[in-house]
Design a binder for these strands. Structure first.
Lengths: 150, 150
DNA sequence: CTACGAACTGGAGTGAGGTCTAGATCAAGT
DNA sequence: ACTTGATCTAGACCTCACTCCAGTTCGTAG
């Protein structure tokens, strides 16, 4: 899995981009925006060196982003973690609220899926019968229409 | 449900906004962008009058948008419907492709949910034990860390 | 040393999806 | 007739989350 070889040499920005799927642009952008917990180490020449911990944090960030957490919330969460122990209750509230949003989103998507599946079914049946006839044509009505919202 | 009283008087843009949850701005925007199937009727004075069919189409649009269909695809779909019978196979392909995307999205969200749930669990346990100790603090490591991606 | 790719910075640009403004018009109530 | 509130149009503006660019520096291979 993603964290199986966490304890390796520090990685360059390009390597992290490759491993996480984020672009190097996005990685610098996230850093500028304060979405990372620790300051990223630099080489003598100023290049970033990401540790396993940095990458793990990025993987969490990616999951949170993928599930729709806005960058502002992610930033807030990073700040809390950065400021160390003592604010775990707030971190929990933040994550818990997000979890609820994700669950609501899943439910909404499932409803969308069933509406779409119904519509796909209407077209598929229509095509298998090889018949034309104003499907959802305002001038003809749709005799097969049930209730799309149920 | 949303379509229980579809056969009523035509509605003003404000009434449609109220019933669909879209803003009047968004309704005009959708029309300008060609996302609607039929041209919306107008009163002598130029105000829009939405029929039940118009509203039904909007409700479908909302479900497709909610589930992440880009406006460009929605526009394409509206064009197909507008051009009447004969292109049902393409409509089906479009919807079917979208359905797959929705399903993939649901699976991705479920994975996110489990990662978040795991993290929520870590914090909850931590708080219930009333103990501090560098949770995800780079300087301390996280002894409870399993594999966040599984 | 020279070349060349990868990385650096700050800031401008992009695309999606609306949202808002200005100024005019319409329709209903008093 | 007057006032009020909803609607009209065209077009400017906004947020979000990046993405790209210019010009420069780093570091490794030949």
């Amino acid at each position: 899995m993603a964290t199986t070889e966490t304890r390796t040499e520090p990685l360059s920005i390009g390597e992290v981009a490759e491993r996480t799927g984020l672009s190097v642009h996005a990685l610098r952008f996230y850093e500028r925006e304060g979405l990372l917990v620790g300051p990223i180490q630099r080489t003598a020449g100023g290049r970033r060196r990401y540790t396993g911990t940095d990458v793990d944090w990025l993987l969490i960030c990616i999951k949170l982003r993928e599930s729709g957490m806005p960058l502002a919330d992610l930033k807030r969460f990073a700040e809390l973690v950065r400021h160390g122990p003592g604010n775990e209750a707030e971190r929990l509230r933040l994550l818990d609220a997000h979890q609820r949003r994700v669950e609501a989103q899943i439910r909404a998507l499932e409803e969308c899926r069933s509406v779409i599946a119904w519509k796909v079914g209407v077209y598929a049946e229509h095509l298998s019968r090889g018949e034309a006839g104003g499907l959802w044509d305002p001038t003809a009505g749709d005799p097969t229409a049930g209730d799309p919202t149920t």
